[in-house]
Design a protein around this nucleic acid. Structure first.
Lengths: 221, 221
DNA sequence: TAAAATGTTATGGTTGACCTTATTATTCCT
DNA sequence: AGGAATAATAAGGTCAACCATAACATTTTA
């Protein structure tokens, strides 16, 4: 814990909210699931966070970040994604592990380090998963990309970014070549929430709907 | 917390022991002082550590690292000093701040990251304060250097390393040019534990005895 | 509109790492 | 040898962040 004296746990909650709903309310149960805690714990923590003015909680509706909370969250995301760039581009670490490795570092990163790291890296705009890096003050820019799970059958789109966090899921997506920049055609959506059948490059791939939520794509311009 | 599932606090205790006594027993009160905790707390913690087989405590004598504890400690020191190199050589951060900045990072550094960082940096042998960096498996090599406080009046010696940790003290040493590589002549030791009068380069400097404990020197060869 | 699902609060418990104050044990020094 | 200094232990307390179980409130949906 270094920046702003907020606990690691606090930073994780705020980051999770930023990652889950982009500005939208997030239900406490989604939050709890993402952070692998019980919803009772998440409720407690949300109470603490709202006492600190970092989130606002509308009972039975959900939580969202206050502007103060959003600032913190953006800063956390910035630190994480900068570390991902460093770990990938300079330390040559495994693409699928970046999120987890950078996640531990982010909470231990002083503002001086963050800023110097950004300069060292040449102020990158996105992390190796294609997600935007918020700049020093402001927040992250909105991209017009949507999850692969919302694409109509027959469309061909380009992968913009991958928002999965678990190394296992990321390894799987990598194996299917679902990487930023790739073009993907949605061949078929199997019934009963079955997998999406995709054409990625010259290969076919089957992707579960849950994983398709993590793959953000844009129309090909 | 990442490497080995040991808590940050555990790592700090082990590192402090490695830094204080090089293999020797350390009194719990010295440990407590270094870590800014009460000696009651340090006693508690030492009990926990010895239950885990990381230290052995001889009541009324002191504590020392077991071989298991020493391994962990070396690894922590390695991580810290590698980060110091990175922060100094690549991020151009302030020399006096390196210890503190690297200290937060060290506990959040996975083994993969440590190893890749070492490679990236070209397996440096010392940190920017002149202290040796333990290699991946073994422990740190012993240098034949002694604190400036033990040098006889009249001698000229070379600064090998600086073991202070607080940014403030490091800034002060830097201001006096007491940096690794510098030659220093001990002009006089003032009575009543007064300061040491030094010649550093072409300037004279007065250095308190407590700070002189942190400056390690070797005879000029 | 009532039952099911979801969300919230209450209660009580755990763990690690701290704290204070007080007491007891040992070592050191004269 | 005896008192001072130092070290250790005991007892009780705090705080953040978790947990489980159970009760209660609201929303969704059939």
């Amino acid at each position: 814990m270094i920046a702003g004296q907020l606990s690691e746990s606090t930073e994780m909650y705020l980051k999770a909210m930023a990652e889950l709903g982009e500005g939208e309310v997030v239900s406490i149960s989604r939050l709890a699931e993402r952070l692998s805690v019980t919803s009772v714990s998440a409720n407690e923590m949300v109470r603490r966070l709202s006492e600190q003015g970092l989130v606002s909680h509308l009972p039975y509706k959900g939580v969202n970040l206050t502007s103060k909370g959003r600032d913190v969250a953006c800063n956390v995301v910035r630190r994480q994604r900068l570390w991902e760039c460093f770990l990938y581009n300079h330390l040559k670490l495994e693409w699928a592990q970046l999120y987890e490795l950078a996640c531990s570092l982010e909470h231990a990163t002083a503002p001086e380090v963050t800023d110097a790291l950004a300069v060292f890296l040449g102020n990158p705009k996105t992390c190796p998963h294609g997600n935007p890096i918020p700049d020093a003050d402001g927040c992250l820019p909105e991209l017009n990309s949507n999850p692969l799970s919302t694409v109509p059958v027959g469309d061909t789109v380009r992968v913009v970014s991958v928002r999965a966090t678990s190394t296992e899921v990321l390894r799987h997506l990598q194996k299917l070549s679902l990487l930023p920049g790739r073009e993907v055609t949605l061949l078929e959506a199997a019934p009963m929430d079955g997998p999406l059948m995709l054409k990625v490059g010259d290969r076919e791939a089957a992707l579960g709907l849950l994983m398709a939520e993590f793959v953000f794509v844009e129309p090909i311009s």
